[in-house]
Design a binder for these strands. Structure first.
Lengths: 160, 160
DNA sequence: TATACTGGACAACAAAGTTGTCGATATGCG
DNA sequence: CGCATATCGACAACTTTGTTGTCCAGTATA
């Protein structure tokens, strides 16, 4: 449509972005598994981040992540079972249950951040630090500020 | 780890890549839906591309996409029901069933390509054509050549 | 106080994969 | 030639991760 002769086909860049994302996430979770966190799933990272230092509730978590409160509730139950979060009653509102990260949950966050930095360093070495910063700047222009939403519920819909 | 003071946190770039990918795919499928293909799913695009002009079989499709042949078979059955592919016996091998795109299937491919080019043109306008080409070149260095694999079977594992 | 809203739990269901098994067909080799 | 092995596609059962709908308890508003 508006592409010059030897440009990449339009689908290539998005697909490569997805591929890079997936490689990074796979590496993070392979490392986490090797470092004592074999049960942490990619989406759990989003959940951990969304819980944050002050804690949340299931309904808020769902809103932050763009999923239903029920789905958020299931995640929390799973993570509680794995020892990554704790639930406590909210003293100001008897309906709510506050979710907080345990030390083990924080550990995941710390280790993930470390692996992400390692990956970033590798990319910096591959492309040069300046070029990588340009890439990051460009990506910021291409994506909204709340790049944190998940709503992957079923966007990768039916193959079948 | 190896990051200078004001660098982006390591997780930002991968997440923004995923976001950009998802926005592009959402736009493509919103357009497809508006143009008479409401039932086409993101993964179907991969399937269509993998079928190609010469046709395939379920087992080959599974290998190309990195999913099981059963899953590929389900996709094919769905797409056949939607009128996007046809099945015919292989004259050289009675076990195999050849999968080919119908005219309607090719139409999806053509329309998708068009939307992807529109998106690319918008990015070119936003960043400048030269920066976009650099971005594409960088992404090629960061990702493998077979950037086409799907194997999203469950990589986005359990939230719950 | 009566009504409406919100938080969390339970249940039923949907989508898209997976593994395992099976019969039918090909293929390779003694 | 004929048997052992491998592959194709189909069927079934299951898993994961989400969805809606319903319900009750607690809070807020008029």
């Amino acid at each position: 449509m508006a592409s010059a002769p030897h440009d990449a086909p339009g689908f290539e860049l998005p697909l490569r972005m997805f591929m890079a994302f997936r490689m990074a996430l796979d590496e993070v979770h392979a490392e986490l598994a090797a470092q004592g966190h074999p049960d942490v799933r990619p989406t759990h990272g989003y959940v951990f981040q969304a819980i944050g230092p002050h804690g949340t509730t299931a309904a808020d978590l769902g809103r932050a992540l763009g999923i239903s409160k029920q789905a958020a509730g299931k995640s929390i139950a799973t993570l509680e079972g794995l020892g990554y979060v704790t639930l406590s009653p909210d003293p100001h509102d008897a309906r709510r249950k506050l979710v907080h990260l345990t030390a083990r949950g924080v550990d995941v966050l710390v280790r993930s951040a470390r692996v992400f930095e390692t990956i970033r360093a590798r990319w910096a070495a591959e492309l040069g630090p300046e070029r990588l910063r340009e890439l990051e700047a460009d990506m910021r222009r291409m994506t909204p500020d709340d790049f944190f939403r998940l709503d992957v519920p079923g966007w990768f819909g039916s193959v079948g």
